[in-house]
Simulated scan of single mutants.
Amino acid sequence: MYIGTNKILRVFIIFLAIMLFLAIYLYYTNRTNLNPLGLTLYGNIEQRQISLAFNANERITELFVEEGDSVIKGQLLGKLDTRTIRQQIKKAQAQIKANEAALLRLKNGSRPQEIEQAKAVVNVAKADVEHKKKLYNRYTNIVKMTNGQGISKQNLDESRADYNASLATLDNKKLALELAEIGPRIEDINQAQAILKSSMADLAILNRQLEESYLIAPADAFVRARILEVGDMASSQKPVYTLALISPKWVRAYVPEADLGKIKQGMHANIISDSFPDTPIEGQVGFISSNAEFTPKYIQTEELRTALVYEIRIYVKDPTNQLKLGMPITVKLRD
Rank of each mutant, 00 (worst) to 15 (best):
L215V: 00
D162S: 11
K174A: 03
I189H: 06
K173L: 07
A161Q: 05
L156E: 04
I246G: 00
L177K: 00
L170Y: 02
R185K: 13
P218E: 01
G150T: 06
D162Y: 15
A204S: 09
M233I: 09
I216R: 02
N172K: 15
N164A: 06
R185M: 11
I151L: 05
I142Q: 03
E211F: 15
R160T: 04
E187S: 10
E181K: 12
I151W: 10
A201S: 05
E178H: 15
R226A: 01
I182W: 12
A194D: 12
D220E: 15
R224G: 08
G183I: 09
A180G: 04
G148N: 08
I195Y: 12
R226P: 03
V240H: 04
E187L: 06
N141R: 12
A234L: 08
R160A: 05
T169E: 05
S247C: 04
L228P: 04
A219E: 08
D188P: 08
M233K: 09
S213D: 01
D188F: 03
R208E: 14
K249A: 02
I195P: 02
S236T: 14
A244F: 11
L175V: 11
E181V: 10
L210Y: 07
Y214M: 10
M233A: 07
P239D: 07
N164E: 02
S166L: 05
L228V: 07
F222D: 08
K144I: 04
S247R: 10
I246K: 02
Y241M: 01
I151A: 02
L167F: 12
S159M: 08
V230I: 10
D157A: 15
S166Q: 01
K144Q: 13
A221H: 06
Q209I: 11
S235E: 08
D162F: 11
I195C: 03
L228G: 05
E187M: 08
E187A: 05
K174P: 09
L179V: 10
R208M: 15
L206S: 09
D188Q: 10
A225G: 09
S213L: 03
W250Q: 01
A201Y: 12
N155G: 10
L210Q: 00
L245T: 02
